[in-house]
Design a binder for these strands. Structure first.
Lengths: 175, 175
DNA sequence: TGGAGCATGTAATGAGTTACATGATTGG
DNA sequence: CCAATCATGTAACTCATTACATGCTCCA
């Protein structure tokens, strides 16, 4: 019965180690803490919580206002979380529609691409700036290197992407 | 009826511009051409082909051996492809379970991480080498810069990731 | 000539997103 | 005190993956 949990559910279990939370709370927590490299939606969270409650990994507490009910970790939940942590994590997956468009660029009317490319570049520049700000704040607050590993991933990733944008051939960037 | 196609279906339409292909062929084609940044499975391909045949975007030709049947692009399909190309592409999405594990590292028994990290690093080093080989071959074969844009994305990405691995703090890499 | 492995497709399941519904709060 | 907005959850749908089935080929 203690079914193997998926990564999304496991994250919820991870967060519940800090105390019971409702689905809504968990969405906020996750968004803030892992949202940059692991997206999830409310619907997913409620589904996983319900499934985990069924499996005994979490326990719903009494409902508060407007059906809000917090879930608490059970021992089985703690176990499932540790089991998940001990499995070798899968490879990352990336899906970048812009690359798809670039791969089919020969079917595009000329000039069409430049706008898309510029918009995406701007987005990445913005994210990069955001990550840099976060890093500076964290460092100022005395964060240790180990606290910055995921943020550093984002930083290096965005740097690489912006660099890529800055070296695209003119066929792609002019229009 | 000419429903908006999703990116996966649109890619199939893109490939069919080069002539009719069966589902199986399309999987091979896609794997080779966009597999590095857009994963798809046989099941998806068959589903999308069936749906697109329903919608009149492709046309099934007569079945050959073991039910193999090729699909040909229709005019409506060409139109749907162009419509897809003209929409602004969505942001990329990345999901990296290893980062998730790192985010919950405080719940891990010490020493557990190092192996995971080493395995992932090796994988990325291998991919980087593969991309470099591909680039060299392409250049030797006289490829233009515009033919290398997606490959260059992969190169810069893998370089950044390996670099990230090489700067992880010892808490994470020792064990 | 038969069985190992490849080719090809379908079915079942799981995960993720979008759209919808409704109860609480609160500033005007 | 009511209309706008936020909080909270559910339902419907789309997309993706895994597991299964079966026909063909080819060589030992």
């Amino acid at each position: 019965m203690a079914r193997r949990v998926n990564a999304t559910a496991a994250s919820l279990l991870g967060f519940l180690h800090d105390g019971p939370q409702s689905g809504y709370d968990l969405v906020q927590t996750a968004e803030a803490s892992i949202g940059d490299f692991w997206s999830l939606t409310r619907s997913q969270v409620y589904r996983e919580l319900a499934a985990m409650a069924d499996a005994g990994l979490v326990e719903a507490q009494e409902a508060g206002a407007r059906d809000r009910r917090a879930y608490a970790l059970t021992d089985a939940g703690r176990g499932a979380f540790r089991a998940w942590l001990s499995e070798p994590p899968a490879q990352e997956q990336i899906r970048y529609p812009l690359l798809l468009v670039l791969a089919f660029a020969r079917h595009l009317p000329p000039g069409q691409l430049a706008g898309f490319v510029a918009a995406h570049r701007a987005e990445h520049v913005g994210r990069l700036a955001g990550y840099r700000r976060q890093r500076d704040e964290a460092l100022a607050a005395g964060a240790r290197p180990v606290d910055l590993v995921t943020l550093n991933f984002g930083l290096r990733y965005e740097e690489a992407v912006v660099d890529w944008f800055d070296h695209l051939p003119p066929e792609v960037t002019d229009g």
